Simulated scan of single mutants.
Amino acid sequence: MIRSMTGFARRERQGPWGTLVCELRTVNHRYLEISLRLPDDLKSLDNDLRQAITGALRRGKVDANLYLKSSGGSQQSLEIDTALLDELAARINEVRQRVPDTAQPSPLDLLRWPGVIRDASIDSTPVLAAALELLKESLTELNDTRLREGQRIRELLLSRCIAMRTQVQQVRARLPEVSLRLRTRISEKISQLGVTPDPERLEQELVLYAHKMDVDEEMDRLAGHLEEVTGVLDSAEPAGRRLDFLMQELNREANTLSSKSQDSETTRAAVDMKVMIEQMREQIQNVE
């Protein structure tokens, strides 16, 4: 089943450390592009979270946001990372030796440095495990949403394929009549000139002209591409790029049919096909 690249999921989980919130948004993109936003307490999970997203999604632009809201009524204490503070002070002294006129930072400036001050009441191990599990649950919900949207797109694409097959059958059924009308029209024009052509030469020219205008191959290729589209829609693999390629091939055959057409009904059918192909192409841009 095909999946859409557009989706949204939101999950929450509560614990002694507070409330975890995970939000995922995806839109169409040529490749998989991940934008991950994490609070400082969860920064160490960055690589694991990215691996989880990569394992669940193949294509699309992903905005993944995790928030940690501390419990409102809990008493929380703060602690200072003295090792980091000492390192920061040493680097500041090095700068002051090279640039003596540099202003001395205030203690508040030092405390604002990322990681110097942290919440001592949060045990990182359970909250990190909960965050990773919450992301996986959100990815499952996201894929369910994308699968439902993909089913809607699949039904739309199938309906267009059925309509195009009908057009192909109608054009194919008219080919003998179109060929006969073409021969009759050419013979009438020659008669209007008041000359008597050589029958054998005339037949050869008619055959050559009819061959140039013949669209049997285009009909066969159109039918074959439509069958391929139907097969790809039921494939378990990501199908967006393959479907996009097939739309290009369908459009090429429809253009050739239109350029060869010597019949208004065939021309109208070719135009209708191109309209439906463009409608399918717009939907396929959103398929994973």
Rank of each mutant, 00 (worst) to 15 (best):
D86N: 13
E87N: 10
E87Q: 12
L88C: 06
A89T: 08
A90E: 07
I92D: 02
I92K: 12
N93C: 02
V95L: 15
R98Y: 01
V99H: 14
V99P: 05
P100R: 12
P100S: 09
T102K: 09
S106M: 07
P107A: 13
L111H: 03
L111E: 01
R112P: 00
W113H: 12
P114D: 05
P114M: 05
D119Q: 10
A120L: 03
S121W: 02
D123S: 12
P126Q: 07
A129Y: 01
A129R: 12
L134Y: 04
L134P: 01
L134M: 05
K136F: 00
E137F: 01
L139V: 01
L139M: 07
L139I: 01
L142C: 05
L147I: 00
E149R: 06
G150L: 06
R152M: 12
I153A: 03
S159Q: 12
R160D: 08
I162R: 15
I162H: 14
T166A: 15
T166S: 14
T166H: 10
Q170Y: 02
V171G: 04
V171S: 05
A173Y: 02
R174K: 09
L175I: 11
P176Q: 08
P176F: 04
P176G: 06
V178H: 05
S179C: 04
L180N: 08
L180E: 12
R181G: 05
R183N: 10
T184A: 14
I186P: 08
S187L: 11
K189W: 03
I190L: 15
Q192P: 00
L193V: 07
L193Y: 06
V195S: 09
T196M: 03
D198T: 05
P199S: 07
E200W: 00
E200R: 11
R201S: 06
R201K: 11
L202N: 07
L206E: 07
V207P: 04
Y209P: 00
